[in-house]
Nucleic acid binder design. Structure first.
Length: 182
DNA sequence: GTGTGGCAGTTAG
DNA sequence: CTAACTGCCACAC
């Protein structure tokens, strides 16, 4: 499996899962910050096994992070680029440029991989853009589901079904509700 | 609609 | 260092 994640361990971290629509959303927190967010179960399990973490996060911490996601998922635009995650810092220059550009895409707008490659001044790197999207450590907060193929949906680490559901929901101006698991 | 060749960045070996 | 991947694209049928 590809080393998608930084090799250095991160202290004081915890994991929890929430539910968005019918899809599980895996969140990795450190203190009061979200450092990783994905729909991809495999990525989540890799992280769980790689890093020592608290088995039972404090409720206040979980609630606080959940609120951040709940707000971000319905926001018209992303206010700030969440650069404080160590997973962002561990990305290459190219990946950081891609993630930065994605975070500028507002609700109900999509860019193609090619258009995004143009925006970072590397028009032929559309394929590498796809790879960088795949390794986005902060799904939703960095809305990589808004990057699509020129003729079609394109891929999604959490599965095409989730990507399509997110995009149609946004187009209908749906308010997404994040729920806790029982 | 399908096939094919090339693309750039990243990682594995 | 090569080789082998991709969340792609253009262009040809």
């Amino acid at each position: 499996m590809t080393p998608l994640f930084p090799s250095q361990p991160v202290a004081s971290i915890y994991f929890f899962t929430m539910q968005l629509g019918s899809y599980p959303l895996y969140i990795m927190g450190k203190n009061d910050k979200i450092i990783h967010l994905t729909f991809n179960r495999q990525h989540h399990e890799q992280l769980c096994s790689r890093y020592p973490h608290s088995p039972t996060p404090a409720t206040t911490q979980v609630d606080s992070l959940a609120q951040i996601v709940q707000h971000a998922i319905n926001a018209e635009t992303n206010t700030t680029f969440p650069a404080d995650s160590p997973f962002i810092a561990a990305g290459s220059k190219f990946q950081q440029q891609v993630w930065q550009q994605i975070s500028l895409i507002p609700r109900r707008l999509t860019l193609t991989y090619g258009q995004l490659a143009n925006r970072i001044g590397n028009p032929k790197a559309y394929r590498a853009v796809g790879q960088a999207c795949n390794r986005n450590p902060l799904g939703i907060l960095i809305p990589c589901h808004r990057v699509v193929a020129k003729n079609g949906l394109g891929g999604f680490a959490g599965g095409g079904e989730v990507k399509r559901w997110l995009l149609t929901g946004e187009n209908k101006n749906k308010k997404f509700i994040l729920r806790t698991l029982e």
